[in-house]
Design a protein around this nucleic acid. Structure first.
Length: 872
RNA sequence: GCCCGCCUGGCGGAAUGGCAGACGCAGCGGACUUAAAAUCCGCAGCCGUACGGCGUGGGGGUUCGAAUCCCCCGGCGGGCACCA
């Protein structure tokens, strides 16, 4: 392919042009904005999720940042003052893994990656304000994060508490649920234990009601993401109630449970405790069987796979509880592996007839199954529950004072009764848990507190921030290098001066990304944010990133913004008023047909044959073409953006990635598609070359038919592009530009006529400006040739369509008979109904079809369609 | 299991109640060329020589008119999943 670039005809030399225009934009400061602008332009903040500096950019980045750049360039042209920054989500485990595996310091590894990736992004020609760049691993960033944490701590939004965690005994670290695979640590392979540890938590649950209710107001968020967050927050209405033990344990007289079905209390068969429940622990202290059961449950771990395959199992403690409503009735207390300590109270009452889990459990241990909700139309004497619990609506029976009520009324009545008896009350419960942010890792933001034997937890005084990570650490031992460091953690207590210890845990990396969008508004500020700057720029008007962050990052950021509001840092609650989630970039995968059971092959190793088959580039051996799937290193179906940009240029890569399909869907990267995009760049350039430069006179007085038609096409394209870009329909925008280019090419084959050359010139000038959000370098190159006014396209306003040229000269009206298309008629726009109907009736083919038929109805939609409805 | 989304030519897709298949990719034919590449011109949903018929996963409905709205079924993809 590279040979063809030097072939005949005028060629757009992107290799020279792209760096030249990038330099011109930088020199003119086209994309720079002030923290607090002096002008009165409306603001627009467009942000793409900042990258983790893993080493090189990948196609997902190219897609993400191209989408954002189209928006940024378009909005700038529309007269907005656009904030479009870039930075680095630079803390994280891969850096530590590199340190362990390759003996390179995490900081060195990270900063080298940043340098590489910054250069790659700059070659894409993104309209970024690079003066705002920062990396979260820089103390100049994370020091402010420590300040925010201390403010949260003072405001009661951060706390230290005991919690159950996944503990990897081999690596000596806490693992996230996602890092536990089949009950084993993902790195060490050791069996993960549940362990109670003292950890830092951010009180996201305080905002649960608001985080839920505000979702309705995020109108420019995908419905899907809002639904996912809604489920994650998980509001449920029910009751909390206490069951008295028939024979109290020492120090424990009652058990509290949470239920959403207080209406089914009469159907109770048992009470079940989570294995970690304090009463279970108390029983285990004197009952070896209980202790063994609890130990076994703990070993099962918390991985999804373990939960899914786990059979419901229980252990009867021998204890009994009294029913709150039925005098004298007692029920057994079990310890059960399916009860979660983390949700509700860690104990449930079991009603097998109306809960599937309780039913499974009851069948296994031969416990009573008593229906208390009768489905509509069912016979009370004959209705039974076999192996499927009844969870639908119905009438309550077998339930004393609740008999005859429907389910909803029964819930209300049961809560009233619990409150009257003083044993319970209505309660709203949430699935959302507080956010545990402690990590036993080196490459993260140190948590700025000191542990003093006398004073307890003492915050690091603000003036001692930042607490900087020490450089001289070793990775030769498992566990946290900060903990092993000889001196770092030994400090004087800021309160009493006695020897004390620094906290050696660091923050979860999701903390870093929960406020970076705010820092971008004033990246040099002495405080976490400059209030005037965030008041001006926030919220982010358009946020763009992958759907994989639908819950964690986006929910944490929503929480952080609220917490920052309550601590006086910002004045808003929602960080992102618009959210767009892009699809993945996919590619065919290839395996060698022979070899060691078919090793994966890189796309560049494979040659597709004309007949659709594929062979290996070097060996010529057959290659099996596999599924089209997300690019991944393990499947080797990746394409390196650097190689594409070197071979075809940044504009081609950007154009193809936008043109293939709607941006929210997964796209398939294909060589043919890239080649097609490249052809278009050359074609646009040739159209401009064909016009012979800038020499063109004033607007002519008169235009011939073809000239006028071309002008109409140009101005219709301006209008269509505007609409497509506003609606994120970038693939449609691309199509409209192909059409305009085709129209210009067509005009070259009609005989010369007044104004035609001028109309062509206008068309190509407009084409350059319309294409500029997508192919900014080519746009500048063409503009410089045709309109050398000393201005850059990047500085020009968006073209305005001439309303006089938008109206079509004639409209084509479809003529149907009984809903079937039988012909078309050309009419002036907005022609009178009678004239259109007459013309329609006179259309030869329509006449033929209508012959001998009686028209009973004539439907006319102006400028669009006529439909004749015939009788008989 | 629950929830959500999607299903249109060989492929990506366009059209969100009014001419289905814009635009691109792949393909076919032609021009140019010694030849190829590049470029340019043209063809192109399926069936049929044609008038025409059929056609947006399948079936039904609403409407003058349905890819689009409603109901049922099927397929594919994604998310959540012992949350009491």
């Amino acid at each position: 392919m590279s040979e063809t670039l030097t072939e005949t005809g005028p060629r757009y030399d992107f290799r020279a042009a792209e760096p030249r225009w990038q330099a011109a934009w930088a020199e003119r400061g086209c994309f720079h904005v002030a923290d607090v602008p002096a002008d009165d332009k409306p603001k627009y903040y467009v942000l793409e999720m900042f990258p983790y500096p893993s080493g090189k950019i990948h196609m997902g980045h190219v897609r993400n940042y191209t989408l954002g750049d189209v928006v940024a360039r378009y909005k700038r042209a529309r007269g907005y003052s656009v904030l479009h920054p870039m930075g680095w989500d630079a803390f994280g485990l891969p850096a530590e893994n590199a340190a362990r595996e390759r003996r390179i310091h995490p900081a060195k590894w990270t900063w080298e990656n940043i340098a590489t990736m910054r250069a790659e992004l700059q070659r894409m020609g993104l309209s970024l304000d690079w003066s705002r760049e920062f990396a979260t691993c820089d103390p100049a960033y994370y020091g402010h994060q420590q300040k925010l944490f201390l403010d949260f701590l003072r405001a009661g939004l951060a706390e230290r508490k005991e919690s159950w965690v996944n503990w990897d005994p081999a690596d000596g670290t806490v693992l996230a649920n996602e890092q536990v695979i089949d009950g084993r640590g993902w790195r060490s392979g050791a069996l993960v234990e549940k362990k109670q540890l003292s950890q830092w938590f951010l009180r996201i649950t305080k905002y649960a009601p608001e985080l839920l209710s505000a979702l309705d107001r995020l109108e420019r968020w995908p419905e899907r993401v809002r639904l996912m967050q809604e489920r994650w927050i998980g509001r449920s209405e029910g009751a909390r109630l206490r069951f008295a033990l028939a024979e109290p344990e020492p120090g424990i007289a009652e058990v509290e449970v949470y239920t959403t079905r207080p209406d089914t209390l009469y159907g109770m068969s048992f009470l079940a405790l989570a294995p970690e429940h304090p009463l279970a622990t108390a029983v285990a202290a004197r009952d070896a069987g209980a202790a063994a059961f609890i130990a076994e449950s703990r070993r099962m771990g918390t991985s999804e796979a373990a939960i899914e395959t786990a059979e419901k199992r229980g252990y009867d403690t021998g204890l009994r509880v009294r029913h709150p409503f039925v005098k004298g009735a007692v029920f057994p207390v079990w310890i059960a592996n399916f009860v979660l300590m983390e949700y509700g109270t860690g104990a449930i009452f079991g009603c097998p007839a109306h809960d599937q889990r309780d039913l499974d459990f009851a069948r296994k241990y031969k416990l009573r199954v008593l229906p208390v909700v009768l489905p509509p139309g069912a016979d009370a004497d004959r209705f039974t529950v076999a192996d499927e619990a009844y969870v639908g609506p119905g009438t309550i029976y077998h339930s004393g004072f609740m008999d005859g009520l429907d389910v909803e009324a029964g819930k209300r009545r049961a809560i009233e009764e619990l409150e009257r008896l003083g044993v319970g009350r209505g309660e709203v419960n949430w699935r959302l848990r507080d956010w545990g942010v402690s990590r036993q890792r080196y490459w993260g933001c140190p948590i700025p507190v000191i542990h003093c034997a006398a004073c307890g937890v003492v915050p690091v005084p603000d003036e001692q921030l930042p607490v900087v990570l020490p450089d001289d650490v070793t990775f030769d031992r498992p566990g946290n290098p900060l903990d092993h460091h000889p001196t770092w953690k030994h400090v004087a207590c800021p309160a009493c001066g006695a020897p004390a210890q620094r906290e050696t845990d660091t923050f979860d990396v999701f903390v870093d990304s929960s406020w970076y969008f705010a820092r971008f508004c004033s990246p040099q500020a002495k405080e976490p944010v400059m209030r005037d700057a965030v008041d001006h720029w926030l919220p982010v008007d358009q946020y763009i990133g992958g759907i994989e962050h639908a819950i964690l990052h986006l929910l944490y950021s929503r929480f952080f913004t609220r917490a920052m509001k309550d601590t006086g840092h910002v004045g808003i609650e929602e960080p992102f008023s618009g959210l767009f989630t892009q699809g993945m970039v996919t590619h065919e995968s290839y395996r060698s047909a022979s070899g060691l059971n078919g090793t994966w092959l890189y796309p560049e190793e494979v040659i597709r044959q004309p007949d659709g088959s594929a062979v290996h580039r070097d060996s010529g051996e057959p290659v099996v073409v596999g599924r089209v799937e997300a690019m991944s290193k393990s499947k080797r179906n990746t394409v390196d953006p650097e190689a594409i940009i070197a071979r075809y240029g940044a504009d081609t890569a950007r154009w193809f990635i936008l043109s293939d399909n709607p941006p929210e869907r997964d796209m398939e990267w294909t060589e043919a598609g890239v080649a097609g995009a490249f052809r278009f760049t050359q074609r646009v350039f040739r159209l401009a070359e064909g016009l012979g430069g800038a020499a063109i006179g004033d607007t002519p007085d008169r235009f011939g038919t073809a000239a006028l038609a071309l002008r109409r096409a140009t101005h219709r394209t301006i209008a269509a592009m505007t609409e497509a870009l506003e609606g994120f329909a970038f693939n449609v925008a691309v199509a409209r530009l192909y059409e305009l280019a085709n129209a210009v090419a067509d005009s070259e084959r009609v005989p010369a006529e007044p104004g035609l050359q001028w109309a062509r010139h206008e068309a190509v000038r407009m084409l350059a400006r319309l294409v500029s959000p997508m192919m900014p370098h080519l746009a500048e190159e063409v503009h410089a040739r045709l309109a050398p006014d000393g201005r850059l396209v990047a500085e020009l306003p968006w073209p305005e369509a001439d309303p006089g040229l938008l109206a079509a000269e004639t409209v084509t009206i479809a003529v149907q008979v009984m809903g079937k298309l039988r012909g078309t008629v050309e009419m002036p726009p907005d022609a009178p109904r009678d004239a259109v109907l007459a013309a329609a009736r006179g259309e030869p083919n329509v006449m033929r079809v209508l012959e001998g038929k009686r028209i009973v109805k004539e439907v006319y939609v102006p400028n669009r369609i006529v439909n004749f409805v015939t009788g008989d």
